[in-house]
Each structure stands twice: as C-alpha cells, then as structure tokens.
C-alpha cells in the first residue's frame, strides 16, 4: 500500500480537529473526532447497530439482484436489436434523468410504506443504469471478431454466446458497479423517508432529529465505509472475471 493514500484522511482529520479546537462550529453540531470514534466503538458493541446494518444490507441485496437480472436482459436486447434500441432509448434516457427519489412517492402508492416501495424504487433506477451500460457493451463490440467467428462457421446463437456476450461483459460489470453504489444511496435515503423502524439511514435520521450528533456522524462514517468496501470488493471480483478489460 502506498503511503500517499493516508494523506487524504489525515488532512481531513486535522481540519476537523482545527475546526473543533477553534470552536468554529458549535460542538453540538460537530463533535470532536475522538468523541465520534468513541461512539463508533461503543455502537459497534451493541446489537442495534448490527441489526440496522443487516436490515440495510438486506434491502440493498434484495434490490441489486433483480436490478441486475432486469437490467442485463434489457441491455442485451437493446444492444442486440437495433430496433429495440431506437424504440426504448428515449424512454430509458427519460427515466434515467429522473432523480430516483422522485418516483418514491409513486412507488409507495403502489407498494405501501414497507420495504417493497424502497426496493422497487432502487430496482427501477439501478436496472436502467445496468441496461444502458450493457447495451453499450453489446453494440460496441468489434465487428472483426464477429467476422472471424462467422468465417469459422459459427451460428448466430454461437456468435452471441461466444463473442457478443463475453465482449460486452466488461461494460456490464461497470454498469453493475455503478448501480451498486446507487443502490446504497437510494436505500439509505429511502430509509429516512417514512417511519421505517430500522436500517442505517433510519438511524442517521433519528440521531440527527434528537441531536445525538456523535451517533449521527458515526453512522454516516459507517455508511461511507460500507459503500467504499462494497465498491472495492466488487472491483476485485470484476478484475478477476473480466481480466482482459482495458488491456
């Protein structure tokens, strides 16, 4: 690991301490880093925090998995059939430009105030991201590779399975990675919307409302760390599966 990567966190910590010591912000709104750290440790010893993390994780996975299935399927169709692409491109771009949370009230009308509305909102937004990237991967494959396979007598199904699909895979994975971080933010924010009862977003919101700021900051740090780690793990998997990407 390079030493440089510690410079960023260290400077933020130093800035935070300076603001705290100079009393530039009321400590009620910005507690000291060591207070937050202590809170983080004591929180991690309670079952409540882990239950909240588990609840959020469950919602993220429950939305990410179907989003992948729907998004990849949609993307492959759009990339493969030029007609499907022209037919859906505008609609997909329209919904993609829509902030995910703008459709959350609509989803609540349909699916109630429980988890289903949160999951539906996330699936909707994430599947579009994955679809766009997958479609790009399919339609931007090298023409030459298709010709090579055709010359060797590949049927169109073989060409799709053995050339088009692996060639699109790096883009599919990029779409999935972007969608995963999207899923984390949409789930955490929708947990704040209505009385959810659990979830890390709910914890942040409640802590903020009741001025338990140390707890609020530690929960924010936990969300950040979780998102960061999910992304890193996904990148590791991605590099293993699509080892040829970018080379």
């Amino acid at each position: 690991m390079k030493r440089e990567i510690l410079y960023g966190p260290t400077s933020i910590l130093m800035l935070w301490y300076s603001v705290y010591w100079l009393r530039l912000i009321n400590p009620l709104f910005l507690p000291s880093p060591h207070e937050v750290a202590a809170e983080l440790v004591s929180l991690s010893l309670t079952a409540g925090l882990w239950n909240d993390i588990a609840a959020s994780m469950w919602r993220i996975i429950a939305s990410f998995a179907p989003a992948c299935c729907a998004g990849i399927l949609m993307g492959l169709l759009m990339g493969y059939y030029k007609g499907a692409n022209s037919a859906f491109e505008m609609i997909v771009d329209f919904f993609r430009s829509l902030p995910a949370l703008a459709i959350f009230p609509l989803m609540m009308l349909f699916f109630g105030i429980g988890d289903l509305a949160k999951i539906a909102t996330t699936v909707f937004s994430c599947s579009l991201i994955i679809a766009v990237h997958s479609a790009y991967g399919v339609s931007n494959g090298k023409k030459l590779r298709q010709e090579v396979a055709t010359l060797m007598g590949a049927t169109s199904l073989e060409r799709f399975l053995k050339v088009t699909l692996p060639e699109a895979l790096p883009h599919v994975m990029i779409g999935m990675r972007i969608a995963l971080s999207f899923a984390v933010s949409i789930i955490v924010v929708t947990e704040m919307f209505v009385v959810t009862g659990n979830g890390i977003g709910h914890r942040i919101f409640e802590a903020g409302l009741t001025y338990r700021t140390a707890e609020m900051y530690s929960s924010i740090i936990i969300v950040g760390l979780a998102g960061y780690m999910l992304n890193k793990v996904f990148m590791l998997i991605e590099r293993r599966i699509v080892h040829w990407a970018g080379k």
Partner: peptide, 14 residues
C-alpha cells in the same frame, strides 16, 4: 481461413 492485419481485434481477449 482469413488472417487479418489487425491481430489484436481478431483474437478473443477472454
């Protein structure tokens, strides 16, 4: 059998 000038695009990198 066809051998193309562009060898990197004619092979399958995966």
């Amino acid at each position: 059998g066809f051998v193309f000038q562009n060898y990197s695009d004619s092979l399958f990198p995966w």
